[in-house]
């Protein structure tokens, strides 16, 4: 397991998935099914459990699980129609991680195609809107829609844009507080103006 120490990977696995018990379990019903009067989970019972438990039990052949609702046909149609409009942060903050992890067990080819198509559409939107200078409000609106994986891509993109800008101005990335050559830019503008005036004079 490569992502054993990753906080995000661990939190992604907290997503609930609908699971079906093959044989049942003793004395754990109060946890798995809140509000249940019985003590044991029966064979064939359907419960919602976190992905980390579902994968481990399914690996041993004790349960089977199916996809969370967000990957169902209804949402797939919505996402295919306009992937960039759907707010993933609220519904499924770990949309891609969870999808891929489920797919390790379910081997659903349409799901992987669906995931990559969704990402491709949303990525285009993310780059075209997020990395050019837009107003703070539009940026916040975009950020509030991204899933956490997309947000990481988004922040890396913004960071690299600002670094590239700094490089083209010829500065070394130092501490942010140090970097404020406002006066220089003003004087550069003045120089340009002077040059333009000089050119106009020679044209006359």
């Amino acid at each position: 397991m490569t992502d054993y120490w990753s906080m995000d990977a661990a939190l992604a696995e907290e997503t609930l998935v609908p699971t079906k018990f093959k044989y049942g379990a003793l004395g754990v019903a109060s946890v798995l099914e809140p509000g249940s009067v019985r003590n044991d989970v029966e064979a064939g019972a359907k419960v919602e459990m976190p992905l980390w438990l579902a994968t481990q039990l399914t690996r041993r052949g004790m349960t089977t699980f199916s996809l969370p609702e967000i990957y169902h046909e209804r949402y797939r149609r919505k996402l295919n129609a306009g992937a960039e409009c759907i707010n993933l942060k609220g519904r499924a903050p770990y949309f891609y991680d969870v999808g891929n992890k489920c797919n390790e067990f379910l081997q659903d080819l349409t799901l992987s195609a669906f995931l990559s198509r969704t990402y491709a559409t949303r990525y285009r939107e993310l780059v075209s809107k997020g990395l050019s200078t837009v107003s703070g409000e539009a940026m916040l609106e975009l950020q509030s829609k991204l899933s956490l994986e997309e947000l990481a891509v988004f922040e890396a993109g913004r960071d690299s844009v600002s670094r590239a800008e700094m490089w083209s101005r010829g500065a070394r990335p130092r501490r942010a507080a140090v970097y404020l050559p406002i006066r220089k830019r003003a004087s550069a503008g003045r120089e340009e103006e002077q040059q333009r005036e000089a050119r106009q004079r020679t044209n006359k």
Partner: peptide, 12 residues
């Protein structure tokens, strides 16, 4: 199998 499932659940 039921006992095995329960034990695995606790272990996980």
């Amino acid at each position: 199998e039921v006992t095995a499932t329960t034990m695995c659940l606790h272990y996980e």
